[in-house]
Each structure stands twice: as C-alpha cells, then as structure tokens.
Simulated assay, not measured.
Amino acid sequence: MNLYLDLFLTFAKVGVCTFGGGYAMLPILQREVVEKKGWVTEEEVTDYFAIGQCTPGIIAVNTSVFIGYRQRGVPGGIAAALGVVFPSFVVITIIAAFLTKFATYPVVQHALAGINAAVVALIAVSVLKLGKTNLRGRPAVCIFLGVLVLGELSGLLAVDPATPLGAVLDLLSNPAFLVVAAGATGWLLGRVKLPSQGGEDR
C-alpha cells in the first residue's frame, strides 16, 4: 500500500476513535503507530505529544503532523493531518445538515455520558503507560509530581484569576507553561549531571 494512503487511513482510524480530545487518542495512537506500524517508539510518541501540547493548534493534529513528517516529510505530515480530521469533518457535516437539535435527544445524551466515562478510562490507561515508559529515576518522578501539583493548584485554591495571585496561579497551571518548564528542568538537570559523571570517569 502507498505509504501516504497508509498514513491517511491509519490516522483516520485514530480520528474515528478520538472521543474526548487529544488525550483520549493517546492509547489508540500508541497501538496503531507504535505496536502495529512501528513508525515511532513510545518515547518518540511522548515527545511529539508534549511538543503538540505546547504548539498552537489541536494536539491530535499536531501529533499526526509530526509523525507523518517523520515518515515522508511535508506530504506525509499533510496526509496524516487530513486523516485525523477527516472522520470528525464528516460526522459534524452530517449532524449539521440533518440533525439541528442532535445534542438534545435523550439517547444522544446517554450515549455521550457513556463516552465521557470511557474517555476517563482511556486517559487513565495513557497515564499508566506513559508512566511506565518515562518515569525512570528520581528526577523524572519529582518533575511529574511537581507538574501534577502545579496543574491542580489554581483549582484547589480557587483564587480569583483577576487578582495578581490568581493570575500567577493561572500561569503556573497552564499546560503549555508546565510542559516547557518541565522540559527546561529536565535539560538543566541533565547539564548538572554530566560534569559529575565526567569527573567520576576520570
């Protein structure tokens, strides 16, 4: 099969199953591009996902572009991005054309409630998988716990965002800030560790 078509179809399959946003797609993405296709490793998926979190746009689209670009450059990135958005485009077009009050139907509301519960489970699976792969050593665990605490801090303290303290807490809990700060912390820890290792080798 042509690789461009394979990229499109693979990410279309991911797009069909992406209920609940980019976080819920992660276990499906891992199964399709890591386990089945072998296009990238689990560590690389995590890196792309983190970069996709900090760059403008939708996480699912950003991640698909990175993986597609890795396989076949710019055309591969375009094919992957088109694949991941195509199912949503079709479904939304059908709903908009034929069902003006789609979300008000009781059967739809019950279905969405079940989907929401499934999304929580999918995200939990993603966290466990990523934890096993990436939380190696005390520095990684400490960064993880720090990001976890900061991410929940503004919600737990319930400070008005209009106040200076609320604005600071809002910044500290921003996902893009947390990803960049965690990356910078890891880089600094690596820079501090390297000289000591070199000294021991001598």
Results as ranks from 00 to 15, higher is better:
1 M>N: 15
3 L>T: 04
4 Y>T: 01
5 L>K: 14
8 F>S: 03
11 F>R: 00
13 K>N: 06
13 K>T: 02
15 G>S: 08
16 V>P: 05
17 C>Q: 04
18 T>C: 15
21 G>W: 06
23 Y>D: 03
28 I>M: 09
30 Q>Y: 04
32 E>P: 05
32 E>G: 07
36 K>Q: 13
36 K>C: 08
38 G>R: 04
41 T>D: 10
43 E>C: 04
46 T>D: 01
49 F>K: 00
49 F>E: 00
58 I>S: 11
59 I>N: 02
60 A>C: 12
62 N>V: 08
62 N>L: 14
63 T>P: 00
65 V>D: 01
65 V>A: 10
65 V>Y: 02
66 F>I: 03
66 F>A: 07
68 G>H: 01
70 R>G: 11
70 R>S: 14
72 R>S: 15
78 I>K: 08
78 I>Y: 08
79 A>V: 11
80 A>K: 00
81 A>I: 01
89 F>W: 13
90 V>G: 08
91 V>F: 13
94 I>T: 11
99 L>D: 02
109 Q>T: 02
116 N>P: 00
119 V>Q: 10
126 S>C: 12
126 S>I: 00
126 S>W: 02
126 S>D: 06
128 L>M: 14
130 L>D: 00
132 K>P: 09
134 N>M: 15
135 L>Q: 01
137 G>Q: 10
140 A>P: 09
140 A>S: 15
140 A>H: 09
141 V>R: 10
142 C>L: 15
146 G>W: 01
147 V>I: 12
152 E>N: 12
155 G>A: 15
155 G>M: 08
159 V>S: 12
159 V>H: 09
165 L>D: 07
165 L>Q: 11
166 G>K: 11
168 V>K: 02
171 L>T: 07
175 P>I: 08
178 L>S: 00
178 L>I: 02
180 V>M: 14
183 G>T: 04
188 L>Q: 05
193 K>Q: 15
195 P>H: 09
196 S>N: 13
